[in-house]
Design a binder for these strands. Structure first.
Lengths: 337, 337
DNA sequence: TTGTACGCGTTATCAA
DNA sequence: TTGATAACGCGTACAA
């Protein structure tokens, strides 16, 4: 049996209340001698506060739940790290929940977290959604979401990444370098960042008087193989001098394909990734990419959520985060210019 | 205020005990009519069990703590995923704790987890240890460790990966292919897997009558830049036809360096990584590596720990896991053979 | 078939 | 300066 306040109290011939006060530093009105005796017993007996019991009283657990599709996906890994860092900094603990992009798993995890009395939940949505299931779930505690990606009602905090501008500036970077034939290899998703990025791509082109061509946009899976095999099967469109990708892994796949086909990056082909994950920094040349500031986004999600929890204010907040272009070695002026 | 059993009981004009029994499925002795009424109220009121209160009674929380240096390191990412999967499967939740390789952080996290009454802890040790601090910490709940890497007393479960054999077989693979000048670029660590691997390297060479040469062993950091810059600064030893690395990232760095210097992989140089992380599969060619079965190791750590927790048996367990060589495109017969 | 009553470890109020 | 006591929400003998 673990040693409790009661044990300490009995050992020191004081009341539990006294021990409690001392443990919680509310000891202004406790005698020096008593304090010393109790503190000594606590150390000797190895007493440790039972947070469970404490939470029963205080009504908060100082715990949060983090819902993500898959921690192995570098994008989510980075968000998780930022989130955990901030949680730790604020004295909170984080439950890690992978959903494997299954909405059922997501919902059962959220339910479980509520039973566990977490103070709040951070939901990084699965790519697959189900309006009916989501609207039916009643999340009765504060939660934060990334982008407008879920249909859960009454989020407390929403962090939005400006995917439109991110893509716009990525493409603008290529246009400024002189590229005019720019392919876009994107990933499959029903979440709206997909549309936003496509608009960014289109608008940037049009701002430079370059006509948008449907057939310059390819859709495949969000990974190395996806982009690699797409190009292996279809090749680049005639005259293409640059490719923008849905994420760094796809950019990586494009780079592999290029190297294997004797296409020099960036001389013959410029490549841009998205997310600024580790993958954009380990290739040679390193990949120009658009950062979503994943670490910071994770941290902000947690920070704002905690603010909301601790203030108890009943307002919905939205924080917008701009992306940034990170120019590295995979982009340059196109050949012959 | 959240709805409790008491609310349901009052609403249905039954006692709390009745509600409790129904909620927990111990309703053999409850009338059909009562059961229906209560179940209906539960649904209508959106009642959810308070796990905190339940844990106070049952003395278990069905939660575990996972201590790792950094979730962003792919090796730990993979272990974490395996661990969370198994935890979820067994009905447990996982607290994620990054230590950033700081022993003080590790210890404060463990202490916090104990206060939170987790049922057990999985400790993946930081590279930096401190015998004194560790021996002083009294971990009073079951915990599992990976390899013999910590000095905490009385672990319940230890999972050991046979690093010696892993490296032995990796080097043997190269020797079988005909390589005789094999460099080993390793990472810096005081954990004993470092020694084990070095022995594996040495013994494999000696088994084939190839003398071990101190100057064929290089030490740098466990990442792409580490290996890359080592080679940039020192180059390969004269006549080297193959390089074994401390992890996949280093192998990746070697590959980058090779490509930049017109050295063909695997024709001019064979490369072997370690860990079978995603990095060994995204390069071109893909990297031959030695898998530690991280996913399974994470799962086993959790599974065995839970077994221990639920059985209450007071024995220490050690599970040994063999590594496996995964032959991919970065290794082949050396040039001229 | 259902209810009573106590305890889990803590905090907070009020009295002594 | 200290202590008694009532919650917090639930589980479980045991009683009715």
């Amino acid at each position: 049996m673990a040693v409790t306040m009661k044990h300490i109290a009995e050992l020191c011939h004081v009341s539990i209340a006294t021990v409690s006060k001392i443990v919680n530093g509310k000891d202004d009105d406790i005698g020096e001698e008593t304090k010393r005796r109790v503190l000594k017993a606590i150390k000797e007996q190895g007493y440790r506060m039972n947070s469970l019991a404490q939470s029963m009283k205080t009504k908060n657990t100082k715990t949060l739940g983090l819902i993500i599709p898959d921690i192995k996906n570098a994008y989510y890994t980075d968000i998780s790290r930022g989130a955990e860092d901030m949680a730790q900094k604020k004295g909170y603990s984080l439950f890690l929940c992978n959903t494997d992009d299954k909405i059922e798993k997501e919902i059962s995890q959220i339910t479980k977290l509520m039973k566990q009395q977490v103070d709040g939940i951070i939901i990084i949505a699965s790519l697959e959604r189900n309006m009916k299931l989501e609207e039916h779930l009643n999340i009765t505690i504060p939660f934060a979401v990334l982008n407008k990606s879920t249909n859960y009602k009454d989020y407390s905090v929403k962090v939005e990444v400006n995917n439109y501008m991110g893509m716009y500036e990525g493409v603008k970077h290529l246009l400024d370098l002189g590229h005019r034939s720019i392919m876009y290899i994107k990933g499959e998703t029903t979440l709206n960042f997909g549309e936003e990025r496509l608009s960014g791509y289109r608008d940037a082109l049009e701002a430079y008087g370059v006509p948008f061509r449907e057939d310059y946009v390819a859709t495949t899976t969000f990974n190395v193989e996806g982009a690699y095999h797409y190009l292996k099967d279809h090749g680049l469109k005639e005259g293409t001098t640059a490719v923008v990708c849905g994420n760094d892994l796809m950019a990586f796949g494009v780079m592999n394909w290029a190297k294997e086909n004797g296409i020099d990056v960036p001389h013959d082909l410029s490549i841009i990734g998205f997310d600024d994950t580790i993958f954009s920094t380990i290739s040679s040349p390193k990949i120009t990419t658009i950062t979503q500031h994943c670490n910071e986004v994770g941290a902000i999600l947690v920070e704002e959520l905690i603010k909301k929890i601790e203030s108890g204010r009943d307002i919905k907040m939205t924080v917008s985060v701009d992306t940034d272009l990170i120019v590295r070695g995979s982009t340059s002026t196109p050949q012959g210019i």
